[in-house]
Design a protein around this nucleic acid. Structure first.
Lengths: 344, 344
DNA sequence: CTGAAAGCGCTTACAG
DNA sequence: CTGAAAGCGCTTACAG
């Protein structure tokens, strides 16, 4: 069917070639191929057929230049590589984004840099050269310079509800309620939380939610100690808690890595899990399932979060400054670290 | 300093604006800003200053159109999302790529799709619309349709030595030699390997290397069973091995997930680790460090692999069809699953 | 060393 | 419904 002799030369066909072969003007080709009015159905069909026959594909550069749109969005991940190793989160988030972007013919630019300052540089470059039409921001920090930059330059931007752990206080509250209810039902009264760094906005949101939920359930806010998401940090924080006057019988960790480290090192810490210490992780992952006992955790659909973020950005790009949809709540998955009898 | 009144209007400055302000032609601006001969040092300095003052940045689209280069490279990851969760590999690889690409002003397009067929579609789109100048291919399959496509369309492409586990036989041999020597020194004579799917090229390379190394060390090639990289698959394969007439005393797994699952489920499998069964993982990760005992493994610098791949692609783009550099060999890290006495 | 001009491959008013 | 023309923001021979 296709006349391969044309393409074989290596030269890409342009709308000019299509116009010549179909015997119409370039403008008509453009209208026809973009489904715009201005060409008869008959002509449109002939042009389409010719385009297919020649193997034509629009030039992203030409289209971008004349439409003044990049046809791409960016995701600048700001996180130390060493922490990334422990975060299988992003690839799934990206897979979710892609499922939405692909339908719109948008590409995804990805940048992985160690810190927020570097991310600001990346955003500046991307936007300055108009390589992207908008960006998705995750893992927001307190006083995040990316937020300031995006506002200053007017970069279309989506900060998803569920992405980068930036859920709303409401969602955090709901999640903690599930956790605390479950722990209290197991007879626990002395709870504690090992939090992530306070530089993250979501840590602060969780602080609020945790205080509210534990005060309401136990009469007073349960203690919180800050750690850094690493296994070493999680262990140190836990040691501190256990050395206190009234050591907790149940600890909730802001991520999976810290929780898994504690379960793995329970002997060194001098506790039995779950008999002496119940453990809950803020994320789910292989880690939670592989250590023994397996770790009870808050679970959510990261792929769906990515898709939702992309959709949100699309709405912003179309001028509808979309409300961040609430996002599905985290679900508590009960495993061996919070109940005596084996579960599941 | 900068006259913000210009930029505040929102209109991006172009070389036309610079030419007007600096009192020269557009061509001179282009020469000056691209460090090409054809302008006096004095003029060049003035033009540079003007560009900075106006906050000019080149338009990626315009540059791409006139230079006929996209200014971007692509990485199309072909892997099921569920497996991705278990693979913290890619983000680090990407961080490595970026460190090289950023210096050249190249962007990275990322696509995460479930299988090779979808990846072929992505590559076709990227190349058809000239969104990328070249691509990096990882996780090569046997008869990989991406390889065929890349050859057919002439897409510049780099398949890194160490990336996506696509190391050369030589590197695999060296790695297995380290492992087998270590295990033999511990008194093991009955070894086995739980391999990844045979659809991956690197699995076949490992098959060759494994057979050679074990034959040389033990007189006959040690057995291999194929699994699918998942914890369930790894467990099933191990159960099969242990039920055999001469069960192995040491098993080498092609990835970390399978090894970790076996260590985590050692009681259910009815073995003590390392007394009854020594375990070695083909990848390192948090998983290997968190289970107990910690898993001996082959370790390598994934970030460096990513950087090397990007460098290789750059050479291909510059017409020097660069040899894939050998890549650093894997290092054996000895932990608790292969020695009785606690290590490190 | 410098400038006027054509071109990259599209889109989009504007006349017919 | 259709076509000639200008424009998007750069690059690059080609004359001066």
């Amino acid at each position: 069917m296709a006349r391969t002799t044309d393409g074989a030369a290596g030269a890409r066909p342009t709308i000019r070639d299509i116009a010549r072969v179909a015997g119409v003007s370039k403008a008509s080709v453009s209208y026809a191929l973009n489904d715009l009015p201005g060409v008869s159905e008959q002509t449109r069909a002939r042009i389409r057929a010719t385009a297919t026959e020649l193997g034509w594909r629009p030039s992203a550069a030409a289209r971008s230049l004349s439409r003044a749109r990049a046809g791409a969005v960016g995701l600048a991940v700001a996180r130390d590589v060493r922490l990334l190793e422990e975060e299988p989160y992003y690839m799934r988030f990206i897979a979710g984004m892609e499922s939405v972007l692909a339908r719109e013919g948008l590409s995804l630019l990805l940048s992985v840099v160690p810190d927020v300052e570097a991310a600001v540089g990346v955003l500046r470059d991307w936007w300055g050269e108009r390589r992207v039409d908008g960006v998705v921001l995750t893992d927001l920090r307190v006083q995040d310079p990316r937020v300031a930059l995006v506002a200053e330059l007017g970069i279309p931007c989506a900060v998803p509800a569920g992405a980068g752990r930036a859920t709303s206080v409401q969602a955090e509250r709901q999640a903690f309620e599930e956790v605390v209810t479950h722990l209290c039902a197991q007879g626990h009264r002395r709870l504690a939380r090992v939090a992530g760094p306070r530089e993250f906005l979501h840590t602060l949101r969780r602080d609020v939610a945790w205080a509210e939920v534990t005060r309401s359930a136990l009469g007073a806010p349960a203690p919180v100690v800050v750690a850094d998401y690493t296994s070493a940090g999680g262990l140190a924080a836990t040691r501190g808690l256990l050395a206190g006057a009234e050591p907790p019988t149940a600890v909730v960790y802001d991520n999976d890595v810290m929780a898994a480290a504690v379960v793995a090192e329970r002997e060194a810490l001098g506790v039995r899990v779950p008999q002496d210490l119940a453990v809950v992780a803020g994320d789910d992952s292989m880690l939670c399932r592989l250590v023994s006992p397996a770790i009870s955790c808050l679970q959510r659909d990261v792929v769906a979060d990515g898709a939702r973020s992309a959709r949100l950005l699309l709405e912003v790009l179309q001028g509808r400054p979309g409300q961040a949809p609430a996002g599905e709540p985290h679900r508590l998955v009960v495993r061996g670290t919070t109940v005596r009898a084996p579960v599941g």
